[in-house]
Amino acid sequence: MPHLSFPRPLNRALQDIGSNGFLHAITVAIIGLVLLILAAFIVIFMNVNRIAERWQADIRIVAYVKEGVDQDRIRVLHQRIKGFYGVNEAVFISADEALVRLRSQMRNQAGVLDGLKENPLPASFEISLNPVFHDRKSIEGLAAQVRETEDIGDVQYGKAWLNLFLDFFAFFKTAGFITGGLLLLVAIYIVSNTIKLTLFARKDELEIMQLVGATRYFIKLPFYIQGILQGLAGALISLATLYVLFSVFVSRLCCADLPFTPFRVWFLSKEMMGMVVLLGVLTGWVGSYLSLRKFLRAWI
C-alpha cells in the first residue's frame, strides 16, 4: 500500500520558503514583532500583577473603637471581629499604644505631642486578611461588615487608593487583551496574504497537481507547514528579542539605585514561553488555513 511520507511536503514547504525568501522573511518579522509586543505586555502584566498581589496582601483594615467602650466590651468586640469570614488576624491597639507608635514614627517631631493634656487617639483593631480574601469586593464587604458592628466608630483601608489602582489595572488588562487580539488578527491577515501570493505564483502547478490526482491534503500540507514554520520562527525571534531587551532593562534597573524597595522582575515562565510559541504556530496555521480555504474553494 503506497503511503505519503512526511518529509516530502516539508521539503516542498522549505523549497517554497527558499524561493520566496524575502516575502517569508517579512512575514516572519511581522509575526515576530506582534508576538514581541504581546509577550512584552504579558511580562509587564505579570510583574504588575505580582506587585499588586503583594500590595493587596499588605492591605489591612483599621477599625476604630468608639470612645468610652470598656475592656469587657472590647474583649467581646475582639472575638466578634476575629470571627468574621476572611479575617486572618485582628490585633487590638489601645489608645496608649497608638500614641507610643505615633511618637516613634514622628521621631524628632515627637515633641509636639508633649503638650497634649489627654490622648486624642482612639483604640483600634488592625485586621489582616486571609490570602484568598484580597479582592476589592471582599475587602469592601468585610469593611462594611466591621463598620456596622456595634462600638466601632470608623473603618479605614485605603479605599480610594485601592480603587484607583485596581481600576487602572483592570483597564490595563482589558486594553492589553484588545490590542493583543487586534495585533494577532493583523498577523493572521499578513500570513494569509503571503500564502495567497505563493498560491497565485504556483497556480498552474497546483492545477497540474490536481489533474494528476493530488488530494487536497497533499496540496494543502506544504502551505500549512509554511504557515506553521513562519509562526514558529516569528515566536522564537520574538522571545529571543524580548529576553535581550529584558536583560538590558533589568541590568539598568539594578544599577539605578532606586529609592523605593527593590523587587524582583520576572521574565516569562517556561509555560508562558510555550504559550507564545503556540500562539505563533496557531497564527501561522490560521493564516494559511484561511487563504487555502478561499483559494481551493474555487476549484471543482
Partner: peptide
C-alpha cells in the same frame, strides 16, 4: 504541455507517483 517550469523533467514525471504516495 502544462509542464511545471520550475521543476526538472524528473520532478515533473515524479509528481503523479508522488501524489499517489509511492516510495
Amino acid at each position: 504541455f502544462k509542464l511545471i517550469g520550475t521543476q526538472t523533467v524528473f520532478q515533473n514525471l515524479a509528481l503523479p507517483l508522488e501524489v499517489s504516495g509511492h516510495k
